[in-house]
């Protein structure tokens, strides 16, 4: 009953239980954080706007993104993945979501971002619906924990209207 094997087993089982419990508590403690990030995004320029040979519209934008995401970080946060998506409706599609830019914020110290960039991923429509199209710019974030539940949320920004003609 009190052999070495039994004691080792008991110690191992106990420490695994405690570790699991601590992981659970760490993840649960994220619930007490109520983040209030703020962000502004401006479309500075339409670099070009064309219909691709396959018939789909494509546009290239220059964006200015500034955001303060410090409040998303807790002690259980490994990193925050932040990205900007264009969202719009077309006659064929009830929802189109296209990522334009994304970035990884590794720590709270780097959570104030101010970025001037062209769209990192190609903004291509399924079809030719982008002329004169209103779309919403939405800043999404995905909080990746050191352990436990992953959290995501977003902030809908001002809309933007694409011009009526290709350029």
């Amino acid at each position: 009953m009190h052999s070495f094997g039994y004691r080792a087993n008991a110690v191992l089982a106990f420490s695994v239980t405690i570790l699991a419990l601590i992981c659970g508590i760490a993840s649960f403690s994220d619930n007490f954080n109520s983040p209030s990030p703020d962000a502004q995004v401006r479309v500075l320029n339409i670099n070009w706007f064309r219909k691709k040979p396959d018939g789909n519209d494509e546009v290239s934008l220059t964006l200015n993104i500034s955001a303060n995401l410090e409040s998303l970080f807790t002690w259980n946060t490994k990193q925050v993945f932040v990205f900007l998506a264009a969202e719009y409706k077309t006659p064929k599609n009830a929802l189109n979501q296209v990522s334009l830019w994304d970035g990884i914020i590794p720590s709270k110290e780097k959570a104030k971002i101010r970025i001037h960039t062209t769209n990192k991923y190609r903004f291509i429509d399924q079809g030719s619906n982008l002329r004169g199209k209103d779309f919403n710019l939405t800043l999404h974030w995905h909080v990746m924990p050191k352990t436990g539940k992953m959290l995501r949320d977003n902030l809908v920004m001002s809309g933007f209207r694409l011009p009526e003609a290709y350029r």
Partner: peptide, 16 residues
């Protein structure tokens, strides 16, 4: 991997 683009059909609800 992470989803970076979604196109959801209006009539069928199918998604790309």
């Amino acid at each position: 991997h992470r989803v970076i683009k979604v196109h959801e059909r209006k009539d069928t609800g199918e998604v790309d």
